[in-house]
Design a protein around this nucleic acid. Structure first.
Length: 284
DNA sequence: GTGGCAATAT
DNA sequence: CATATTGCCA
């Protein structure tokens, strides 16, 4: 039983987890809402730098929503009403929108309701209202794409409002709900996701509490106008595109890279090429 | 309770 | 201007 009584202790001592290993664990016990409410962030992580140093664990299930914090801090928010706390405005970055579109595409228009979309996206901090609002706008966008005629300035497709939507390819079935063979994905990998969602959120609670970005100048393209107001437009890249393929033949300018959906169809009709693409498989 | 949609607010 | 919120209804 006893090997070396004098040794086991030093061993035990050595095997003690370092504070760095402990902290994240304790944080995962904090619900995203609480973290948001109390403005809790990772001790060793400054709100400014966001390092994405190739996570050793390939299990990327979730990305964090990016928020824009209003420069004017609300006074009464420092208290306990964690429930009714006011969340920062959600910034729908192209990446986030892509997730949204993918979710809708994979759900099928039938099941693409705010709640399920939100669940499938599994972006922590994302609320049903966020999705609902965005979905509403997105539907209008789709609507006016199909009937989009009108040579005049009203109809078409240019308003800066559409820039976001244009950043992500629109699945074909969105425009043609009338297809004889529309066995759209009703299988939905999420079974009891209602509960899983919470666990997932807890597991990767990298929640980003209202951040006060200052150098919002670094963002590459910048989609929104420089916000003539005094507000900080924090459009950041959540993740650096690490595995980006260079398509030398097709300039990225206005060619909607069409590598989306079809996972269902190809899996069904394509014998040699089962593209069983899990939904949150990439994030560009 | 949830979803959709228009209007309205921030 | 982009989201959020609200009101009203299915």
């Amino acid at each position: 039983m006893r090997e070396d009584d004098s040794d086991w202790f030093s061993r035990w001592e050595q095997d003690l987890p370092s504070p760095d290993e402990l902290i994240p664990l304790s944080q995962s016990l904090i619900s995203p809402d609480l973290a948001l409410a109390f403005d809790i962030r990772s001790p060793g992580q400054q709100p400014l730098h966001h390092h994405q140093s190739a996570p050793p664990t390939p299990s990327q299930a979730n990305s964090s929503a990016e928020f824009a914090a209003d420069s004017s801090d609300l006074g009464g928010a420092g208290d306990e009403p964690a429930r009714t706390l006011k969340r920062p405005r959600l910034v729908w970055t192209p990446q986030l929108h892509k997730r949204f579109v993918d979710a809708v595409a994979h759900l099928g228009i039938k099941n693409a309701v705010p709640k399920t979309i939100m669940q499938l996206m599994s972006v922590d901090g994302l609320t049903r209202e966020n999705v609902a609002s965005h979905l509403q706008k997105y539907r209008l966008y789709l609507k006016r794409m199909q009937g989009g005629l009108s040579s005049g300035g009203g109809g078409g497709s240019d308003p800066a409002t559409d820039r976001l939507f244009a950043s992500s390819p629109v699945p074909a079935h969105f425009l043609h709900p009338n297809r004889s063979d529309h066995f759209m994905p009703s299988f939905v990998p999420i079974a009891t996701l209602q509960q899983q969602q919470q666990m997932v959120a807890a597991a990767n609670s990298h929640l980003q509490p209202p951040q006060f970005h200052q150098r919002s100048q670094i963002a590459a393209g910048h989609f929104g106008s420089p916000t003539a107001n005094g507000k900080f437009d924090a459009s950041f890249l959540a993740r650096q595109t690490q595995t980006q393929q260079r398509m030398s033949t097709t300039p990225t300018l206005h060619s909607p890279v069409s590598n989306y959906v079809e996972d269902l169809e190809s899996a069904n009709a394509n014998g040699g090429r089962t593209v069983l693409t899990l939904f949150p498989t990439r994030d560009d």
